[in-house]
Nucleic acid binder design. Structure first.
Length: 408
RNA sequence: GGAGAGGUGGCUGAGUGGUUGAAAGCGCUCCCCUGCUAAGGGAGUAUGUGGUAAUCCCGCAUCGAGGGUUCGAAUCCCUCCCUCUCCGCCA
């Protein structure tokens, strides 16, 4: 949610910024709604004030019938005014919840991912003396269509060595972030309510990407640990000294992936269920830029320890997600595709989620909104896939990255 | 799942229809006093939002959430959520 004060004061700045991500901010509509709101609110509050005064008079002048009649009709009026204001307020809320975050100044302007900018390429690409296999070659051998049998397509079974490797990768990531990077480990619910999803920005706009638990329930499977972890302190006022809070959380993630039919149908790249180690930070607004840089370093470190070639990419304005102000993707090398593929997305959400989740800290100025950040550190399934591809051997097998050897 | 109790400000805790946004205590901030410390005295101390550009001023809202009764609700009624105790079940 954007700052209402900014929206009122300079809608044209907002409009210009948001147009860079292809969002048309209807400032006429906004100004109209705000004017309606102001009239309705002032009207209600004036009538309420008079009614309050009248009520006090009644309490003093015991049972004055004419005063009571007057108050009664005023009360009816106030009730109507409340309904009017409420309906306007609902429209405003709906309008505001639909607006994406402002794009950071440093983000390249462009329509889509073709305008993303490569910041840096790290690590040497593997040089195979044979035709490298796709990771799905290894996965298919263990899954054999059973994920689809048990659940549906885009679910996968791992067995034996691959199941173990999958488990160990997550373990290694958490250990690195807790021991070396100072994150606190969390275990959280894998089911979240609507309020939490509104807080981080998945709702109301992106319901179709989620798995909902039953028609009547307002519970959903987590699409990412970002949701439970960022909402950990929702509606709280943190102490200044607590900041920054740094959490790491390994969780399964469930995404319905509606609208992605035909993309990445093989292997582990795009699944309805996958594991991810998520990094979340809650910090002072002045610090979010530098915390973002450090977050990216922390996530990158995993790829470096695993000795996987990767690159850093800054997403263009048009490719940046709804809640983010700036996003840096880490993309890992997939030899079989001769391409880099996303394995982590590190975003600064500024105060966008904090406003939705009412997440504040106490400062000398009063209560201020925190800034939130998160990034995958990393997606476990895709990491497994990247290891299989980059560490494969000519005999249709693979070896383990050095750092994982004492885990296996 | 069954039976009962309860949800009030940073915390403890009063308050069962009318100057109660809310007693009291603790905590916190500032000032005074005491050669330091301890103790004592005084003042202040919720949030959100609107009128306004405004930390002043004035208003409105907020006592788990949402509805209802009433001129008026923290107080009465209904629904939901949560916490606690006992019983049942269970990893």
């Amino acid at each position: 949610m954007l700052d209402k004060k900014l929206l009122i004061k300079s809608p044209e700045i907002v409009k210009k910024n948001l147009s860079s991500r292809g969002y048309i901010f209807d400032d006429d509509q906004w100004i109209k709604l705000e004017e309606e709101r102001k009239i309705a609110q002032v009207n209600l509050e004036t009538n309420q004030e008079n009614l309050n005064k009248l009520s006090k008079e009644i309490s003093k002048s015991k049972d004055d019938e004419s005063l009571k009649d007057q108050a009664s009709s005023l009360s009816t009026l106030v009730k109507q005014d409340k309904e009017i204001l409420q309906s306007i307020q609902n429209n405003i809320d709906e309008f505001l919840l639909d607006i994406p975050n402002l794009i950071d100044k440093s983000v390249p302007v462009g329509e889509d991912e073709s305008s993303n900018e490569i910041i840096e390429e790290i690590g040497d690409l593997p040089n195979f003396s044979f035709e490298p296999k796709a990771h799905s070659f290894f996965i298919d051998k263990t899954d054999e269509g059973r994920g689809a049998k048990i659940a549906k397509s885009r679910f996968t079974v791992l067995s034996g060595e691959l199941a173990k490797l999958h488990r160990v990768i997550g373990q290694f990531m958490i250990d690195t972030h807790t021991n070396d990077h100072g994150y606190e480990e969390l275990y959280v619910p894998y089911v979240v309510n609507k309020t939490s999803l509104v807080g981080t920005g998945q709702l109301p706009k992106f319901e179709e990407d989620l798995f909902k638990l039953g028609e009547k329930s307002d519970l959903y499977l987590v699409p990412t640990a970002e949701v439970p972890v960022t909402n950990l302190h929702r509606d709280e006022k943190l102490n200044f000294e607590q900041l920054p809070l740094k959490y790491v959380c390994h969780s399964p993630c469930f995404r319905s992936e509606a609208g992605s039919y035909g993309k990445d149908t093989k292997g582990l790249i795009r699944q309805h269920q996958f594991d991810k180690v998520e990094l979340v930070k809650i910090c002072h607004p002045d610090k979010s830029e530098e915390e973002h840089v450090k977050l990216i370093e922390d996530a990158s470190k995993i790829l470096e320890l695993l000795e996987l070639p990767y690159r850093k990419v800054v997403l263009s304005s048009g490719d940046t997600g709804f809640s983010a102000s700036k996003t840096i993707d880490l993309e890992v090398w997939f030899p079989s595709q001769n391409a880099y593929r996303e394995i982590s997305s590190c975003s600064n959400f500024t105060d966008f989620q904090s406003r939705r989740a009412n997440l504040k800290f106490k400062s000398k100025k009063g209560n201020e909104f925190c800034h939130t950040l998160n990034g995958s550190g990393l997606a476990v399934g895709r990491t497994l896939a990247a290891i299989l591809e980059n560490y494969q051997t000519e005999d249709e097998n693979f070896i383990y990255p050095k750092v994982l050897k004492n885990y296996i």
